[in-house]
Lab assay of single mutants.
Amino acid sequence: DEFHFHWNGRDIRVRGDSEELRRLIEAIKRGELSEEEIERAIEILER
């Protein structure tokens, strides 16, 4: 699976399928994380 979302003017695409990944992306979409937490998560996910 590939998750695709927009954040902070960026087009983010992440491959993978796990419950943890889904929860993280939902939290990002709901605005539950700080900008710094989101940046760090995206860096890890894009590897």
Rank of each mutant, 00 (worst) to 15 (best):
I42T: 01
I38Q: 03
L21G: 10
E36K: 11
R22L: 13
A27G: 09
R13E: 15
E36I: 11
R23D: 14
D1P: 13
E35H: 14
S34C: 02
I12C: 01
A41L: 10
N8L: 05
E35K: 11
E19A: 11
I28P: 00
G31W: 05
E46R: 03
R10C: 04
I38M: 14
E35G: 10
R47P: 12
A27Q: 15
L33I: 07
N8D: 03
G9R: 00
R10I: 05
L45M: 07
E26D: 12
I12S: 00
D17P: 13
E43H: 06
L45P: 00
K29I: 13
E32W: 10
L33E: 01
R30G: 15
V14Q: 01
F3E: 04
E37V: 03
E26G: 11
E35C: 03
R23G: 13
F3V: 07
R10L: 05
L21D: 14
I12L: 03
I38T: 10
E46A: 05
A41E: 05
L21R: 06
H6W: 08
R47H: 15
E39D: 12
R47N: 15
R22Y: 12
E20K: 07
E35D: 14
N8G: 08
R22G: 08
F3N: 04
W7Y: 11
E46L: 14
I44F: 12
G16I: 10
R40D: 12
D1W: 08
L33R: 01
E46W: 04
R23I: 15
I25P: 00
E19G: 07
L24I: 10
W7C: 01
R22E: 06
L45V: 04
H4E: 11
I28T: 02
I25K: 03
E46H: 05
E35Q: 10
L21K: 15
S34T: 13
G31V: 02
R10H: 07
I28E: 01
L21M: 12
K29C: 07
W7V: 04
E19P: 14
L45H: 02
S18A: 06
R13H: 15
D17G: 05
R22N: 09
R22K: 13
F3P: 03
F5E: 00
E35Y: 12
E43R: 05
E46Q: 06
G31Y: 06
G16A: 12
L24E: 01
E39L: 09
E20W: 06
K29E: 11
E26A: 10
I12Q: 00
K29G: 10
A41K: 06
N8A: 07
W7I: 05
D11G: 02
H6V: 12
I12E: 00
E39F: 06
I25M: 08
L33D: 01
L45Y: 06
R22W: 14
I38N: 02
H6R: 08
I44L: 11
R10W: 02
L24A: 02
R47F: 15
E39R: 07
E26W: 11
A27K: 14
E39Q: 08
K29R: 12
R30S: 15
G31R: 03
V14R: 00
G16D: 06
R22Q: 12
I25R: 02
L21H: 14
I38G: 01
S18K: 09
I25N: 03
G9A: 01
E46T: 09
L45W: 07
R47D: 15
D17A: 07
E35N: 13
E2K: 04
A41R: 08
E26F: 10
N8W: 02
I42E: 01
F5S: 00
I42Q: 01
R10A: 04
E37G: 07
G16P: 11
E19D: 12
D11I: 13
R10M: 04
L24P: 00
G9C: 00
A27T: 10
F5W: 06
A41G: 03
L21E: 10
W7Q: 01
E46G: 03
L21F: 14
I42K: 01
I25H: 03
D17M: 04
A41F: 07
N8V: 01
I38H: 02
I44G: 05
H6L: 06
I42W: 05
E32Q: 11
E2I: 11
R47A: 15
E46Y: 05
R13I: 15
E19V: 13
V14F: 08
W7H: 05
H4F: 13
E36T: 10
D17Y: 05
E26N: 13
R40I: 12
F3T: 04
D17L: 04
E36V: 11
R15Y: 14
R30H: 14
I28R: 01
S18C: 15
D1T: 12
R30C: 06
E26P: 01
H6N: 09
G31C: 05
V14A: 04
R22P: 02
R47M: 15
G31K: 06
G16R: 04
S34N: 12
D17T: 07
H6Q: 10
S18E: 07
R15Q: 15
G31F: 07
I25Y: 05
N8H: 05
I42S: 01
I28Q: 01
